[in-house]
Design a protein around this nucleic acid. Structure first.
Lengths: 355, 355
DNA sequence: ATGAAAGCGCTAACAA
DNA sequence: TTGTTAGCGCTTTCAT
């Protein structure tokens, strides 16, 4: 780093932060109590509004605390209450799905904040000390993949756990928030069929995620019931645009009678447009196109692409909420909750006359 | 939630988690000490490898701890050491940049894990209790926007703070990790010029982020020095594909002599391809196209789009690293560190003959 | 309606 | 090389 490092001059003398630097003296609950002329206990009760102290005293203490800039020490509080005040959030580190996960994260953070909780991010990366169990009161696992060893370990911990989508590996979460992706896909297939599609194909990741497995299963069912040929291509869960394009190309080449294409992965459908054009097909005319996971890129593509809105932010919030209910006992372990999703129909599946 | 809720039967009786449930008795350091026949202190020293105890005793204690499944209570440790063991990470909640931020986050989490720290996510969302200062030992702010009130508040806290990119609002961070986006853009402009471009245009967000401001400034400088006309369109920092497309369309209409287009925002360039095609221009032939922030979608676009690789994962890790150095005193407040970035030249800027 | 005292689990200062 | 003691700041009995 040598050559790339510089230090700007500052008004204050540089000082290290290796210890907490009590300006005068850390303002604790004792400071507040003394200053207000009450006991620790009373101060504590007043500040937390336990309803044990007189309104008058309460106001006095609160005033003093404010004046002193008192902020409760969470470590002490956590030690006393035997909890950490944080929930852990694990996500597969899959960049092509980052739109989804980003929203999911912020939804969870929001919900956690509403309950006074922090969200600690957990990764499956190499940095995870394998023996150290996370210092959190509970876990949310987004899209737990069956073959992720870190997920396995987390599921094996004694912590209350909520997964978003079902988990097919060993162990059962205490709560599950899931969306009926299968039903949504069948709605979509019905819509395509109504628009005249007879040979719909599906590009879908393998079955390590419950989401993909559900989508895949629903497709097979739907086609089976109608005697429609199964036309699928499988891609990795973390398939980037390249892999998905390759799948689409092979589909377009091998199945000339294809008249509808559903690409499950988020970002995929938008990047398929050039591939489709190259193949001499016209989206919305002789080929319908849709995605199982909506994204801004789909809404603004040309033509705009029909997709299932899985409402990731709300899903993240719902997972956190359920976890808190589990933590407080207002929900019982084993609960499953359905997170509603909906189909956004756009140009790409509304058959127009060729211009 | 009623109708959407169900409870699966489980082998164990359902039990709430509202209190920590000590199976027998929580295994503390005292348990370990007693079982090993040593004092608390010795057990503590042995487990942390303070080098105070004999090798023999150390092994004994460690063995016992392992056998008992002892895991240190971090709340107690934090209380004692007057620190929280977590760093806060704040990011603007900007979906169109989620690829970048997602990588950034995981880089930071990785680096933090290497130091035994957790990462707590902070948002500018509504859920943030305005009075509560975050329970962390330090802060990393990715792309602090000048007009974000939460960023202001965080910068105003007494916590050691590292920003990724400079902060132009009130207050100075203790550390800055920044990349020379200006220089990179000028390299890119030089490259476009070499490829024959005479009228390069720039689509760039406003100056609330230091990144965009730098890019914008470098463009003006470069053009100024060469007597090249300034052709720019401004978009919001969180511009989605729609806004960027509109800017590009206006550019292509108003400036028919345009022969190169640099779109600063991440995802933008790829979604510009249809717009450009519509306008009757051919990328890599009569119009060069590039982006200031690389992304998978650019690498796999057709044609592949030249972009500046800003290495977000490494940037996140570098910020966390710097923060830890600040925390331990091995770096002094006021330090700036440059995070190297590089240009990835691809088809979109290599002028080909028209086919 | 309020206080006094105990103690969460750990580490650091002081002894031996 | 090891043990004893004193808290970190808070919440919670148990008294009053």
């Amino acid at each position: 780093m040598g050559a790339d490092e510089r230090v700007t001059e500052r008004s204050q003398p540089a000082r290290a932060y290796d210890r907490a630097v009590p300006q005068d003296r850390q303002v604790t609950i004792i400071t507040v109590a003394e200053r207000a002329g009450v006991s620790k206990t009373t101060a504590s009760d007043a500040l937390r509004g336990s309803g044990r102290v007189s309104e008058e005293t309460r106001r006095l203490v609160v005033g003093v605390a404010e004046e002193l800039g008192y902020v409760p020490n969470d470590s002490a509080r956590h030690l006393r209450r035997a909890r950490t005040g944080a929930i852990g959030l694990h996500l597969p580190e899959v960049l092509p799905r980052s739109d989804y996960y980003m929203s999911f994260v912020f939804g969870a953070v929001q919900a956690a904040a509403d309950h006074g909780y922090d969200v600690t991010l957990l990764t499956s990366g190499t940095g995870v000390a394998p023996s150290r169990s996370p210092r959190v009161d509970g876990l949310v696992l987004g899209d737990p993949l069956a073959d992720d060893p870190v997920v396995d370990k987390l599921m094996g911990s004694a912590l209350p756990t909520v997964t978003c989508e079902r988990y097919s590996g060993p162990g059962e979460p205490d709560g599950v928030v899931w969306s009926d992706h299968g039903a949504a896909l069948q709605t979509l297939l019905g819509h395509l069929s109504d628009a005249g599609a007879r040979r719909p194909a599906l590009i879908v990741p393998g079955d390590e995620s419950d989401w993909a497995a559900s989508v895949h299963r629903a497709y097979r069912e739907w086609c089976g019931q109608r005697g429609v040929a199964l036309i699928t291509r499988s891609v990795p869960f973390d398939a980037n645009a390249d892999a998905t394009s390759a799948a689409a190309r092979s589909l377009l080449t091998d199945e000339p009678q294809l008249d509808a294409l559903v690409a499950a992965p988020t970002s995929a459908a938008a990047t398929l447009l050039p591939v489709i054009r190259e193949a001499g097909r016209r989206v919305g005319e002789d080929l319908l196109l849709a995605s199982c996971v909506d994204a801004p890129a789909l809404r603004f593509a040309d033509p705009a692409i029909t997709a299932i809105d899985v409402r990731p932010r709300e899903a993240g919030a719902a997972c956190a909420e359920l976890l808190f209910e589990l933590l407080t006992g207002s929900a019982v372990p084993g609960v499953e909750r359905i997170h509603p999703i909906e189909l956004n129909v756009r140009e790409s599946t509304q058959r127009r006359r060729a211009a």
